[in-house]
Design a binder for these strands. Structure first.
Lengths: 208, 208
DNA sequence: CGCGTGATTGAAACCCTTCAAGTTTAGTGG
DNA sequence: CCACTAAACTTGAAGGGTTTCAATCACGCG
């Protein structure tokens, strides 16, 4: 990991602030001293389970995953985060406890990292952002509920179809075994699911 | 469902405001006109999938569940909420869309319901509550992540053991088939899980 | 009492996993 | 640019955990 600082280069982060917080550009410079750009190579850790990392990471460029490792050594992916998404370990950031999860880079990644003080300043210079922030959180909760519902009710095939519909871009950028891990199935199973799907789509032979 | 109004009776809600928002008692009366007490009998719906219900429900007394119904008619429970917990459909409340889920009463239930304007007023009369509210949301996200992790990594038995550890009270109040639905298994499977657990605990016969 | 709901149990079926082998792909160094 | 290696993906056979379907039992309530 390597730390750089060039606010003008983080165009995605600026767009994020404009779009989600309606922050006018003249207020950007007040925030500059609260953010840090970090650069990670593929495979680098942003957060290790057990650490206390109070940074929040905005993904300016690249792709990371958040995952746990169970007692038998198997990894389980809780979240992918690519450009314009935010990733953090909430146990650390909000409750000062050891991180529950690992976060590492799937691709070379540039992040804009900051801690709670950025949000405090943001709320100070523009009080409306409180509501915007709450909306982002509520939406995230909605997304997690939807995922739980899928895990409770859908088969491997249905979950995979939902994944490629929700994240067509990730389907191409993420190795298949990680998608399997996200879906809660083995890589072998996902391979078979894909095969049966391919058969359905390309071999309704009696119709051709 | 039946609507009543007696602020002084909702002692749990008052405690909730004191503990989570540090709201001094002299400020309570400013909120009174923004809340409504509602009473539901066992089986009544608080929210129906497809409705737009912009109320947030604080459970003053009783027990409710939030669930979906899949195409084959099976129910999948996303959340239980008993005393001092909050339940709402976020699609409705925050995005003005039809509710994604059903909510109904497992026991006779009294709720304190309110809409977004209560939070607005609360933030106005006591700005610090913004942070308290965010903390509640972040903690909720943490809880959902933990549940996803369980669904990805743990067997039926492990999930059940975690459930009775996390919610010993609910284990007694909620019928077994609903716990199974929450865990993502069939009632039959849960019955068998419980049997093998009972055998382990009470029949290490060579030891007795 | 009898009915309905919830819990249990058994047998067969199914989906997914495991393990093992083989194939393809991607990255690295000569 | 090819050769080599490791990682990713595929495929097969066997096994395991969970579901399904059906029957039985237990209980509470009108």
């Amino acid at each position: 990991m390597c730390t750089i600082n060039a606010f003008s280069m983080v165009t995605n982060f600026i767009k994020f602030l404009e779009q989600n917080f309606h922050l006018p550009s003249e207020k950007f410079d007040k925030l500059e001293k609260y953010i840090t750009c970090k650069s990670f190579s593929k495979g680098d850790y942003l957060v290790r389970q057990g650490d206390v990392i109070t940074d929040t990471f905005f993904i300016e460029k690249g792709l990371v995953r958040m995952y746990s490792v169970d007692p038998s050594g198997k990894e389980h992916i809780l979240q992918f985060a690519c450009e314009n998404r935010i990733v953090l370990d909430r146990s650390s950031v909000y409750f000062n406890k050891p991180s529950q999860f690992f976060v590492d880079a799937i691709e070379d990644t540039v992040t804009v990292s900051f801690n709670q003080s950025l949000l405090d300043v943001l709320h100070e210079i523009q009080p409306e952002t409180v509501k915007n922030n709450e909306l982002l959180l509520q939406n995230h909760i909605r997304h997690l509920q939807f995922r739980i519902n899928m895990l409770l009710s859908a088969s491997a095939e249905e979950r995979y179809l939902d994944f490629i519909k929700q994240f067509p871009d990730l389907t191409l950028r993420v190795p298949q075994w990680m998608i399997a891990s996200y879906l809660g199935i083995t890589p072998e199973s996902l391979s078979r699911v894909r095969k049966t799907l391919a058969d359905k789509n390309f071999k309704p032979s009696h119709k051709l």
